[in-house]
Design a protein around this nucleic acid. Structure first.
Lengths: 244, 244
DNA sequence: TTTGGTTTGTTTATTTTTTAACAATTGTAA
DNA sequence: TTACAATTGTTAAAAAATAAACAAACCAAA
Protein backbone atom coordinates (compact mmCIF):
# COMPACT_ATOMS: atom_id res chain seq x y z
CA UNK A 1 0.00 0.00 0.00
CA UNK A 2 1.24 3.44 -0.82
CA UNK A 3 0.33 6.79 -2.19
CA UNK A 4 1.84 6.11 -5.57
CA UNK A 5 0.27 6.98 -8.85
CA UNK A 6 -2.34 4.38 -9.71
CA UNK A 7 -2.31 3.09 -13.29
CA UNK A 8 -5.53 3.76 -15.13
CA UNK A 9 -5.51 0.12 -16.17
CA UNK A 10 -5.62 -0.87 -12.52
CA UNK A 11 -8.87 1.02 -12.03
CA UNK A 12 -10.38 -0.64 -15.06
CA UNK A 13 -9.39 -4.02 -13.71
CA UNK A 14 -10.78 -3.28 -10.26
CA UNK A 15 -14.09 -2.73 -11.93
CA UNK A 16 -13.81 -6.08 -13.66
CA UNK A 17 -12.87 -7.84 -10.44
CA UNK A 18 -15.83 -6.25 -8.79
CA UNK A 19 -18.16 -7.66 -11.38
CA UNK A 20 -16.88 -11.20 -10.93
CA UNK A 21 -17.00 -10.85 -7.16
CA UNK A 22 -20.66 -10.00 -7.45
CA UNK A 23 -21.21 -13.21 -9.37
CA UNK A 24 -19.35 -15.22 -6.78
CA UNK A 25 -21.35 -13.60 -4.02
CA UNK A 26 -24.59 -14.46 -5.81
CA UNK A 27 -23.41 -18.05 -6.10
CA UNK A 28 -22.79 -18.13 -2.38
CA UNK A 29 -19.02 -18.43 -2.64
CA UNK A 30 -17.43 -17.12 0.54
CA UNK A 31 -13.72 -17.05 -0.24
CA UNK A 32 -11.72 -16.72 -3.42
CA UNK A 33 -8.01 -16.84 -4.18
CA UNK A 34 -6.17 -14.37 -6.37
CA UNK A 35 -5.57 -17.27 -8.70
CA UNK A 36 -9.24 -18.10 -9.20
CA UNK A 37 -10.44 -14.55 -9.46
CA UNK A 38 -7.64 -13.62 -11.83
CA UNK A 39 -8.47 -16.52 -14.08
CA UNK A 40 -12.04 -15.33 -14.43
CA UNK A 41 -10.98 -11.77 -15.11
CA UNK A 42 -8.39 -12.99 -17.60
CA UNK A 43 -5.41 -11.43 -15.89
CA UNK A 44 -2.26 -12.54 -14.16
CA UNK A 45 -2.76 -13.37 -10.45
CA UNK A 46 0.25 -11.26 -9.52
CA UNK A 47 -1.35 -8.43 -11.38
CA UNK A 48 -4.49 -8.74 -9.31
CA UNK A 49 -2.60 -8.77 -6.04
CA UNK A 50 -0.53 -5.84 -7.16
CA UNK A 51 -3.64 -3.93 -8.12
CA UNK A 52 -5.11 -4.45 -4.68
CA UNK A 53 -1.86 -3.65 -2.92
CA UNK A 54 -2.05 -0.07 -4.11
CA UNK A 55 -4.97 0.40 -1.77
CA UNK A 56 -4.34 -1.83 1.19
CA UNK A 57 -4.34 -5.41 2.39
CA UNK A 58 -7.56 -7.25 1.85
CA UNK A 59 -6.73 -10.93 2.01
CA UNK A 60 -5.55 -13.55 4.44
CA UNK A 61 -2.37 -15.43 3.64
CA UNK A 62 -2.86 -19.08 3.13
CA UNK A 63 -6.58 -18.50 2.73
CA UNK A 64 -7.59 -15.96 0.13
CA UNK A 65 -10.05 -13.09 0.01
CA UNK A 66 -13.46 -12.93 1.60
CA UNK A 67 -15.72 -12.36 -1.37
CA UNK A 68 -18.07 -9.99 0.39
CA UNK A 69 -15.34 -8.01 2.11
CA UNK A 70 -13.28 -7.60 -1.01
CA UNK A 71 -16.33 -6.62 -2.98
CA UNK A 72 -17.06 -3.95 -0.42
CA UNK A 73 -13.51 -2.74 -0.38
CA UNK A 74 -13.31 -2.39 -4.13
CA UNK A 75 -16.64 -0.60 -4.28
CA UNK A 76 -15.29 1.74 -1.69
CA UNK A 77 -12.10 2.36 -3.60
CA UNK A 78 -13.98 3.11 -6.77
CA UNK A 79 -16.43 5.28 -4.91
CA UNK A 80 -19.43 3.27 -6.07
CA UNK A 81 -20.99 2.41 -2.73
CA UNK A 82 -23.97 4.71 -3.05
CA UNK A 83 -26.13 5.31 -6.07
CA UNK A 84 -24.68 7.85 -8.48
CA UNK A 85 -26.83 10.21 -10.45
CA UNK A 86 -26.18 10.71 -14.14
CA UNK A 87 -27.58 13.11 -16.69
CA UNK A 88 -28.00 12.07 -20.28
CA UNK A 89 -27.41 14.56 -23.05
CA UNK A 90 -28.80 13.64 -26.43
CA UNK A 91 -31.96 11.93 -27.58
CA UNK A 92 -30.84 9.94 -30.62
CA UNK A 93 -30.89 6.18 -31.03
CA UNK A 94 -27.82 5.65 -28.88
CA UNK A 95 -29.26 7.74 -26.07
CA UNK A 96 -32.50 5.82 -26.29
CA UNK A 97 -30.71 2.51 -26.16
CA UNK A 98 -28.58 3.56 -23.22
CA UNK A 99 -31.46 4.58 -21.03
CA UNK A 100 -33.00 1.16 -21.56
CA UNK A 101 -29.77 -0.60 -20.66
CA UNK A 102 -30.27 -2.57 -17.45
CA UNK A 103 -26.51 -2.59 -16.85
CA UNK A 104 -26.38 0.97 -15.64
CA UNK A 105 -28.84 0.72 -12.82
CA UNK A 106 -27.49 -2.68 -11.84
CA UNK A 107 -24.18 -0.96 -11.26
CA UNK A 108 -25.78 1.87 -9.36
CA UNK A 109 -26.06 4.55 -12.01
CA UNK A 110 -29.37 6.32 -12.27
CA UNK A 111 -30.38 8.60 -15.11
CA UNK A 112 -32.04 11.53 -13.43
CA UNK A 113 -32.69 13.77 -16.42
CA UNK A 114 -32.38 14.00 -20.17
CA UNK A 115 -31.22 17.12 -21.97
CA UNK A 116 -30.79 18.13 -25.56
CA UNK A 117 -29.90 21.25 -27.50
CA UNK A 118 -32.06 20.49 -30.50
CA UNK A 119 -35.24 22.51 -29.92
CA UNK A 120 -37.48 20.07 -31.72
CA UNK A 121 -36.82 17.38 -29.15
CA UNK A 122 -37.50 19.47 -26.07
CA UNK A 123 -40.62 18.51 -24.16
CA UNK A 124 -40.90 15.07 -25.66
CA UNK A 125 -41.47 12.28 -23.16
CA UNK A 126 -38.31 10.24 -23.43
CA UNK A 127 -38.98 7.58 -20.87
CA UNK A 128 -41.64 7.38 -18.25
CA UNK A 129 -41.14 10.33 -15.92
CA UNK A 130 -38.35 11.69 -18.11
CA UNK A 131 -39.17 14.67 -20.28
CA UNK A 132 -36.44 16.07 -22.48
CA UNK A 133 -35.28 19.44 -21.20
CA UNK A 134 -33.18 22.05 -22.89
CA UNK A 135 -29.54 22.03 -21.88
CA UNK A 136 -30.05 25.59 -20.67
CA UNK A 137 -31.94 24.13 -17.74
CA UNK A 138 -29.10 21.96 -16.61
CA UNK A 139 -27.67 24.65 -14.39
CA UNK A 140 -30.92 24.88 -12.43
CA UNK A 141 -31.22 21.15 -12.32
CA UNK A 142 -27.77 20.76 -10.83
CA UNK A 143 -28.66 23.16 -8.03
CA UNK A 144 -31.47 20.86 -6.92
CA UNK A 145 -29.84 17.52 -7.70
CA UNK A 146 -26.16 17.01 -7.16
CA UNK A 147 -24.86 15.43 -10.35
CA UNK A 148 -21.29 15.04 -11.45
CA UNK A 149 -21.58 12.51 -14.26
CA UNK A 150 -22.89 13.01 -17.75
CA UNK A 151 -23.35 10.64 -20.65
CA UNK A 152 -23.09 12.53 -23.91
CA UNK A 153 -24.52 11.14 -27.12
CA UNK A 154 -24.94 14.13 -29.41
CA UNK A 155 -23.69 14.71 -32.95
CA UNK A 156 -19.92 15.09 -33.22
CA UNK A 157 -19.95 18.75 -34.10
CA UNK A 158 -21.91 19.60 -30.96
CA UNK A 159 -19.80 17.65 -28.52
CA UNK A 160 -17.32 20.35 -27.57
CA UNK A 161 -20.04 22.90 -27.02
CA UNK A 162 -22.04 20.50 -24.88
CA UNK A 163 -18.96 19.53 -22.91
CA UNK A 164 -18.17 23.16 -22.17
CA UNK A 165 -21.66 23.75 -20.84
CA UNK A 166 -21.54 20.61 -18.74
CA UNK A 167 -18.26 21.56 -17.14
CA UNK A 168 -19.57 25.01 -16.45
CA UNK A 169 -22.52 23.49 -14.60
CA UNK A 170 -20.26 21.40 -12.42
CA UNK A 171 -20.10 18.09 -14.25
CA UNK A 172 -16.80 16.38 -13.51
CA UNK A 173 -16.98 13.18 -15.53
CA UNK A 174 -18.10 12.76 -19.12
CA UNK A 175 -18.77 9.53 -20.96
CA UNK A 176 -18.54 10.62 -24.56
CA UNK A 177 -20.12 8.56 -27.33
CA UNK A 178 -18.94 10.84 -30.07
CA UNK A 179 -15.52 10.14 -31.53
CA UNK A 180 -14.50 13.77 -31.25
CA UNK A 181 -11.70 14.35 -28.80
CA UNK A 182 -12.85 17.14 -26.52
CA UNK A 183 -10.88 19.61 -24.44
CA UNK A 184 -11.77 19.88 -20.77
CA UNK A 185 -10.08 21.64 -17.89
CA UNK A 186 -8.09 19.87 -15.23
CA UNK A 187 -10.07 17.94 -12.74
CA UNK A 188 -12.58 16.84 -15.34
CA UNK A 189 -12.33 13.35 -16.78
CA UNK A 190 -13.51 12.09 -20.11
CA UNK A 191 -13.91 8.55 -21.35
CA UNK A 192 -14.65 7.73 -24.95
CA UNK A 193 -16.85 5.01 -26.34
CA UNK A 194 -15.68 4.77 -29.90
CA UNK A 195 -17.06 1.83 -31.81
CA UNK A 196 -15.28 2.28 -35.09
CA UNK A 197 -11.87 2.60 -33.52
CA UNK A 198 -12.41 -0.76 -31.92
CA UNK A 199 -13.55 -2.25 -35.19
CA UNK A 200 -10.47 -0.81 -36.87
CA UNK A 201 -8.33 -2.44 -34.30
CA UNK A 202 -10.06 -5.78 -34.88
CA UNK A 203 -9.57 -5.34 -38.60
CA UNK A 204 -5.88 -4.71 -38.09
CA UNK A 205 -5.53 -7.80 -35.93
CA UNK A 206 -7.22 -9.95 -38.51
CA UNK A 207 -5.16 -8.73 -41.41
CA UNK A 208 -1.95 -8.97 -39.45
CA UNK A 209 -2.76 -12.50 -38.47
CA UNK A 210 -3.31 -13.39 -42.08
CA UNK A 211 -0.02 -11.86 -43.12
CA UNK A 212 1.79 -13.79 -40.45
CA UNK A 213 0.28 -17.03 -41.60
CA UNK A 214 1.34 -16.30 -45.14
CA UNK A 215 4.86 -15.54 -44.08
CA UNK A 216 4.96 -18.73 -42.13
CA UNK A 217 3.84 -20.62 -45.18
CA UNK A 218 6.44 -18.95 -47.35
CA UNK A 219 9.09 -19.81 -44.86
CA UNK A 220 8.04 -23.41 -44.90
CA UNK A 221 8.12 -23.40 -48.67
CA UNK A 222 11.63 -21.95 -48.65
CA UNK A 223 12.97 -24.59 -46.29
CA UNK A 224 10.59 -27.44 -46.88
CA UNK A 225 12.67 -30.08 -45.18
CA UNK A 226 13.63 -28.11 -42.13
CA UNK A 227 12.23 -30.22 -39.33
CA UNK A 228 14.21 -29.10 -36.32
CA UNK A 229 15.52 -25.71 -35.40
CA UNK A 230 13.18 -23.02 -34.23
CA UNK A 231 10.34 -24.86 -32.60
CA UNK A 232 9.04 -21.98 -30.52
CA UNK A 233 5.51 -20.79 -30.71
CA UNK A 234 4.94 -18.06 -33.24
CA UNK A 235 4.11 -14.57 -32.16
CA UNK A 236 0.38 -14.52 -32.51
CA UNK A 237 -2.45 -12.07 -32.40
CA UNK A 238 -3.48 -11.32 -28.88
CA UNK A 239 -6.93 -12.64 -28.35
CA UNK A 240 -8.21 -10.41 -25.65
CA UNK A 241 -7.20 -6.85 -25.22
CA UNK A 242 -9.50 -4.85 -23.09
CA UNK A 243 -8.14 -1.38 -22.69
CA UNK A 244 -11.51 -0.03 -22.08
CA UNK B 1 10.71 0.64 -39.29
CA UNK B 2 11.00 -2.90 -38.11
CA UNK B 3 9.13 -6.08 -37.48
CA UNK B 4 8.83 -5.44 -33.77
CA UNK B 5 5.75 -6.04 -31.74
CA UNK B 6 3.32 -3.18 -32.26
CA UNK B 7 1.66 -1.81 -29.13
CA UNK B 8 -2.09 -2.14 -29.17
CA UNK B 9 -2.25 1.50 -28.16
CA UNK B 10 -0.42 2.40 -31.34
CA UNK B 11 -3.15 0.84 -33.45
CA UNK B 12 -5.81 2.70 -31.54
CA UNK B 13 -3.95 5.94 -32.11
CA UNK B 14 -3.51 5.26 -35.81
CA UNK B 15 -7.25 5.06 -36.04
CA UNK B 16 -7.55 8.41 -34.31
CA UNK B 17 -4.95 10.01 -36.57
CA UNK B 18 -6.83 8.67 -39.53
CA UNK B 19 -9.99 10.36 -38.42
CA UNK B 20 -8.33 13.75 -38.07
CA UNK B 21 -6.57 13.33 -41.38
CA UNK B 22 -9.96 12.84 -42.99
CA UNK B 23 -11.07 16.11 -41.51
CA UNK B 24 -7.98 17.89 -42.76
CA UNK B 25 -8.47 16.42 -46.20
CA UNK B 26 -12.06 17.62 -46.24
CA UNK B 27 -10.87 21.08 -45.28
CA UNK B 28 -8.46 21.04 -48.19
CA UNK B 29 -5.32 20.97 -46.06
CA UNK B 30 -2.48 19.44 -48.05
CA UNK B 31 0.31 19.05 -45.53
CA UNK B 32 0.40 18.58 -41.79
CA UNK B 33 3.22 18.34 -39.26
CA UNK B 34 3.46 15.77 -36.52
CA UNK B 35 3.07 18.64 -34.13
CA UNK B 36 -0.26 19.83 -35.49
CA UNK B 37 -1.75 16.42 -35.99
CA UNK B 38 -0.62 15.26 -32.58
CA UNK B 39 -2.19 18.27 -30.96
CA UNK B 40 -5.54 17.45 -32.48
CA UNK B 41 -5.31 13.83 -31.47
CA UNK B 42 -4.22 14.83 -27.99
CA UNK B 43 -0.95 12.94 -28.03
CA UNK B 44 2.74 13.71 -27.89
CA UNK B 45 4.25 14.52 -31.32
CA UNK B 46 7.11 12.12 -30.70
CA UNK B 47 4.53 9.49 -29.98
CA UNK B 48 2.92 10.07 -33.34
CA UNK B 49 6.20 9.86 -35.22
CA UNK B 50 7.12 6.76 -33.29
CA UNK B 51 3.78 5.17 -34.07
CA UNK B 52 4.29 5.74 -37.76
CA UNK B 53 7.90 4.60 -37.68
CA UNK B 54 6.80 1.09 -36.84
CA UNK B 55 5.42 0.84 -40.34
CA UNK B 56 7.68 2.94 -42.52
CA UNK B 57 8.60 6.47 -43.46
CA UNK B 58 5.74 8.62 -44.54
CA UNK B 59 6.87 12.21 -44.14
CA UNK B 60 9.34 14.66 -45.58
CA UNK B 61 11.86 16.24 -43.25
CA UNK B 62 11.52 19.94 -42.92
CA UNK B 63 8.06 19.72 -44.47
CA UNK B 64 5.66 17.34 -42.81
CA UNK B 65 3.23 14.74 -44.03
CA UNK B 66 1.06 14.86 -47.11
CA UNK B 67 -2.42 14.57 -45.69
CA UNK B 68 -3.79 12.40 -48.47
CA UNK B 69 -0.77 10.14 -48.66
CA UNK B 70 -0.58 9.61 -44.92
CA UNK B 71 -4.31 8.96 -44.79
CA UNK B 72 -3.91 6.31 -47.43
CA UNK B 73 -0.93 4.75 -45.75
CA UNK B 74 -2.68 4.49 -42.41
CA UNK B 75 -5.79 3.02 -44.00
CA UNK B 76 -3.55 0.51 -45.63
CA UNK B 77 -1.82 -0.38 -42.39
CA UNK B 78 -5.10 -0.87 -40.61
CA UNK B 79 -6.50 -2.85 -43.51
CA UNK B 80 -9.46 -0.55 -43.93
CA UNK B 81 -9.05 0.37 -47.59
CA UNK B 82 -12.01 -1.63 -48.86
CA UNK B 83 -15.43 -1.93 -47.33
CA UNK B 84 -15.64 -4.52 -44.60
CA UNK B 85 -18.69 -6.63 -44.01
CA UNK B 86 -20.02 -7.10 -40.51
CA UNK B 87 -22.74 -9.27 -39.05
CA UNK B 88 -24.78 -8.12 -36.14
CA UNK B 89 -25.89 -10.57 -33.49
CA UNK B 90 -28.70 -9.45 -31.23
CA UNK B 91 -31.82 -7.39 -31.77
CA UNK B 92 -32.16 -5.44 -28.53
CA UNK B 93 -32.06 -1.67 -28.12
CA UNK B 94 -28.30 -1.50 -28.44
CA UNK B 95 -28.34 -3.52 -31.64
CA UNK B 96 -31.05 -1.29 -33.03
CA UNK B 97 -29.13 1.83 -32.16
CA UNK B 98 -25.94 0.50 -33.68
CA UNK B 99 -27.41 -0.30 -37.02
CA UNK B 100 -28.67 3.27 -37.26
CA UNK B 101 -25.27 4.68 -36.38
CA UNK B 102 -23.91 6.61 -39.34
CA UNK B 103 -20.38 6.27 -37.99
CA UNK B 104 -20.01 2.68 -39.07
CA UNK B 105 -20.69 3.09 -42.73
CA UNK B 106 -18.71 6.32 -42.81
CA UNK B 107 -15.74 4.28 -41.71
CA UNK B 108 -16.46 1.54 -44.24
CA UNK B 109 -18.26 -1.03 -42.15
CA UNK B 110 -21.41 -2.46 -43.62
CA UNK B 111 -23.91 -4.57 -41.70
CA UNK B 112 -24.81 -7.37 -44.07
CA UNK B 113 -27.05 -9.44 -41.86
CA UNK B 114 -28.67 -9.62 -38.45
CA UNK B 115 -28.89 -12.76 -36.39
CA UNK B 116 -30.41 -13.73 -33.10
CA UNK B 117 -30.91 -16.85 -31.04
CA UNK B 118 -34.18 -15.82 -29.51
CA UNK B 119 -36.83 -17.55 -31.64
CA UNK B 120 -39.42 -14.85 -31.13
CA UNK B 121 -37.30 -12.29 -32.97
CA UNK B 122 -36.58 -14.41 -36.03
CA UNK B 123 -38.23 -13.21 -39.21
CA UNK B 124 -38.87 -9.71 -37.97
CA UNK B 125 -37.83 -6.93 -40.35
CA UNK B 126 -35.05 -5.22 -38.49
CA UNK B 127 -34.10 -2.56 -40.98
CA UNK B 128 -35.05 -2.17 -44.57
CA UNK B 129 -33.73 -5.22 -46.41
CA UNK B 130 -32.58 -6.78 -43.16
CA UNK B 131 -34.65 -9.62 -41.77
CA UNK B 132 -33.53 -11.22 -38.54
CA UNK B 133 -32.22 -14.71 -39.14
CA UNK B 134 -31.52 -17.46 -36.69
CA UNK B 135 -27.88 -17.82 -35.75
CA UNK B 136 -28.06 -21.34 -37.14
CA UNK B 137 -28.09 -19.81 -40.60
CA UNK B 138 -24.87 -17.94 -40.11
CA UNK B 139 -22.79 -20.82 -41.37
CA UNK B 140 -24.64 -20.81 -44.69
CA UNK B 141 -24.48 -17.06 -44.87
CA UNK B 142 -20.73 -17.04 -44.43
CA UNK B 143 -20.33 -19.42 -47.35
CA UNK B 144 -21.97 -16.90 -49.65
CA UNK B 145 -20.61 -13.72 -48.10
CA UNK B 146 -17.12 -13.57 -46.72
CA UNK B 147 -17.45 -12.02 -43.25
CA UNK B 148 -14.89 -11.93 -40.51
CA UNK B 149 -16.28 -9.32 -38.16
CA UNK B 150 -19.21 -9.61 -35.79
CA UNK B 151 -20.82 -7.13 -33.45
CA UNK B 152 -22.41 -8.95 -30.55
CA UNK B 153 -25.10 -7.35 -28.44
CA UNK B 154 -26.90 -10.21 -26.75
CA UNK B 155 -27.65 -10.80 -23.07
CA UNK B 156 -24.57 -11.55 -20.98
CA UNK B 157 -25.39 -15.15 -20.31
CA UNK B 158 -25.60 -15.90 -24.02
CA UNK B 159 -22.37 -14.22 -25.04
CA UNK B 160 -20.03 -17.16 -24.70
CA UNK B 161 -22.35 -19.47 -26.60
CA UNK B 162 -22.76 -16.94 -29.38
CA UNK B 163 -19.04 -16.33 -29.54
CA UNK B 164 -18.35 -20.04 -29.87
CA UNK B 165 -20.75 -20.31 -32.77
CA UNK B 166 -19.28 -17.27 -34.46
CA UNK B 167 -15.75 -18.56 -34.22
CA UNK B 168 -16.87 -21.90 -35.57
CA UNK B 169 -18.33 -20.15 -38.61
CA UNK B 170 -15.11 -18.35 -39.32
CA UNK B 171 -15.55 -15.01 -37.58
CA UNK B 172 -12.17 -13.66 -36.51
CA UNK B 173 -13.03 -10.40 -34.76
CA UNK B 174 -15.75 -9.77 -32.21
CA UNK B 175 -16.93 -6.45 -30.87
CA UNK B 176 -18.65 -7.46 -27.68
CA UNK B 177 -21.16 -5.18 -26.01
CA UNK B 178 -21.74 -7.49 -23.11
CA UNK B 179 -19.46 -7.09 -20.13
CA UNK B 180 -18.80 -10.81 -19.94
CA UNK B 181 -15.23 -11.73 -20.68
CA UNK B 182 -15.35 -14.45 -23.30
CA UNK B 183 -12.86 -17.15 -24.19
CA UNK B 184 -11.82 -17.43 -27.80
CA UNK B 185 -9.10 -19.43 -29.51
CA UNK B 186 -5.87 -17.90 -30.75
CA UNK B 187 -6.14 -15.86 -33.87
CA UNK B 188 -9.50 -14.47 -32.85
CA UNK B 189 -9.65 -10.97 -31.39
CA UNK B 190 -12.22 -9.51 -29.06
CA UNK B 191 -12.85 -5.93 -28.09
CA UNK B 192 -15.19 -4.94 -25.32
CA UNK B 193 -17.51 -1.99 -25.15
CA UNK B 194 -18.26 -1.78 -21.47
CA UNK B 195 -20.13 1.32 -20.43
CA UNK B 196 -20.28 0.79 -16.71
CA UNK B 197 -16.59 0.11 -16.39
CA UNK B 198 -15.94 3.47 -17.96
CA UNK B 199 -18.40 5.15 -15.65
CA UNK B 200 -16.74 3.45 -12.69
CA UNK B 201 -13.44 4.82 -13.82
CA UNK B 202 -14.90 8.31 -14.08
CA UNK B 203 -16.39 7.90 -10.63
CA UNK B 204 -13.02 6.93 -9.24
CA UNK B 205 -11.34 9.92 -10.86
CA UNK B 206 -13.89 12.27 -9.41
CA UNK B 207 -13.69 10.92 -5.90
CA UNK B 208 -9.91 10.83 -6.00
CA UNK B 209 -9.80 14.39 -7.13
CA UNK B 210 -12.00 15.40 -4.25
CA UNK B 211 -9.83 13.58 -1.75
CA UNK B 212 -6.76 15.28 -3.10
CA UNK B 213 -8.32 18.68 -2.77
CA UNK B 214 -9.29 17.93 0.81
CA UNK B 215 -5.78 16.83 1.64
CA UNK B 216 -4.43 19.94 0.08
CA UNK B 217 -6.76 22.01 2.20
CA UNK B 218 -5.78 20.19 5.36
CA UNK B 219 -2.16 20.72 4.57
CA UNK B 220 -2.73 24.41 4.14
CA UNK B 221 -4.56 24.52 7.45
CA UNK B 222 -1.69 22.76 9.16
CA UNK B 223 0.95 25.15 7.83
CA UNK B 224 -1.04 28.26 7.14
CA UNK B 225 1.94 30.55 6.82
CA UNK B 226 4.07 28.30 4.67
CA UNK B 227 4.62 30.36 1.58
CA UNK B 228 7.68 28.81 0.04
CA UNK B 229 8.78 25.21 -0.05
CA UNK B 230 7.05 22.76 -2.33
CA UNK B 231 5.71 24.86 -5.15
CA UNK B 232 5.33 22.09 -7.67
CA UNK B 233 2.10 21.40 -9.38
CA UNK B 234 -0.04 18.89 -7.58
CA UNK B 235 -0.63 15.46 -9.03
CA UNK B 236 -3.97 15.92 -10.69
CA UNK B 237 -6.63 13.79 -12.28
CA UNK B 238 -5.81 13.06 -15.84
CA UNK B 239 -8.31 14.76 -18.02
CA UNK B 240 -8.32 12.59 -21.05
CA UNK B 241 -7.59 8.95 -21.01
CA UNK B 242 -8.67 7.16 -24.08
CA UNK B 243 -7.73 3.55 -23.89
CA UNK B 244 -10.57 2.58 -26.04
C1' DT C 1 2.90 -28.79 18.87
C1' DT C 2 4.92 -29.27 14.78
C1' DT C 3 4.95 -29.92 9.90
C1' DG C 4 3.48 -29.15 5.31
C1' DG C 5 0.66 -27.20 1.96
C1' DT C 6 -1.54 -22.59 0.64
C1' DT C 7 -1.82 -18.10 -0.51
C1' DT C 8 -1.02 -13.36 0.34
C1' DG C 9 1.76 -8.91 0.13
C1' DT C 10 5.78 -6.95 -1.44
C1' DT C 11 10.09 -6.58 -3.47
C1' DT C 12 12.78 -7.31 -7.48
C1' DA C 13 13.33 -8.14 -12.28
C1' DT C 14 11.61 -7.85 -16.87
C1' DT C 15 9.18 -5.99 -20.41
C1' DT C 16 6.73 -2.48 -22.61
C1' DT C 17 5.59 2.14 -23.58
C1' DT C 18 6.40 6.85 -23.65
C1' DT C 19 9.13 10.85 -23.98
C1' DA C 20 13.11 13.41 -25.08
C1' DA C 21 16.94 14.48 -27.88
C1' DC C 22 19.25 15.11 -31.94
C1' DA C 23 21.38 14.20 -36.46
C1' DA C 24 19.74 14.07 -41.16
C1' DT C 25 16.96 16.38 -44.67
C1' DT C 26 14.40 19.65 -46.87
C1' DG C 27 12.77 24.25 -48.44
C1' DT C 28 13.47 29.23 -48.42
C1' DA C 29 15.35 33.47 -48.53
C1' DA C 30 19.37 36.29 -48.41
C1' DT D 1 25.32 29.28 -52.83
C1' DT D 2 25.03 29.46 -48.30
C1' DA D 3 22.83 29.96 -44.06
C1' DC D 4 18.77 29.29 -41.45
C1' DA D 5 14.48 27.57 -39.87
C1' DA D 6 11.52 23.65 -39.88
C1' DT D 7 10.50 18.98 -39.29
C1' DT D 8 11.21 14.15 -39.76
C1' DG D 9 13.09 9.45 -38.40
C1' DT D 10 15.58 7.16 -35.06
C1' DT D 11 18.22 6.31 -31.15
C1' DA D 12 18.71 6.78 -26.34
C1' DA D 13 16.75 7.68 -21.81
C1' DA D 14 13.04 7.63 -18.70
C1' DA D 15 8.90 6.10 -16.96
C1' DA D 16 5.35 2.91 -16.39
C1' DA D 17 3.34 -1.47 -16.31
C1' DT D 18 3.58 -6.34 -15.91
C1' DA D 19 5.24 -10.61 -14.26
C1' DA D 20 8.04 -13.39 -11.34
C1' DA D 21 9.79 -14.71 -7.03
C1' DC D 22 9.70 -15.39 -2.37
C1' DA D 23 9.34 -14.48 2.62
C1' DA D 24 5.60 -14.02 5.88
C1' DA D 25 1.42 -15.71 7.56
C1' DC D 26 -2.19 -18.81 7.93
C1' DC D 27 -4.81 -23.45 8.40
C1' DA D 28 -5.28 -28.17 9.07
C1' DA D 29 -3.84 -32.49 10.05
C1' DA D 30 -0.75 -35.45 12.30
Amino acid sequence: MSKAKIPAATIIRLSVYQRYLKKLLARGVKVVSSNDLAKQANVNPAQLRKDLSYFGRFGVRGVGYSVSTLLNSISNILGVMDERTVVLVGTGPIAQALIRQPGFSQQGYRFAAVFDIDEKNIGQEFEEDLVVQHLNELSDFVKENPVELAVVAVPSDKTQEVADRLVECGIRGILNFSPNRIKVPRGVSVQYVDFTILLDSLTYNISRHKKEEEEQKEEKAAFPKLKWGREHSWPVVQSNNTMA
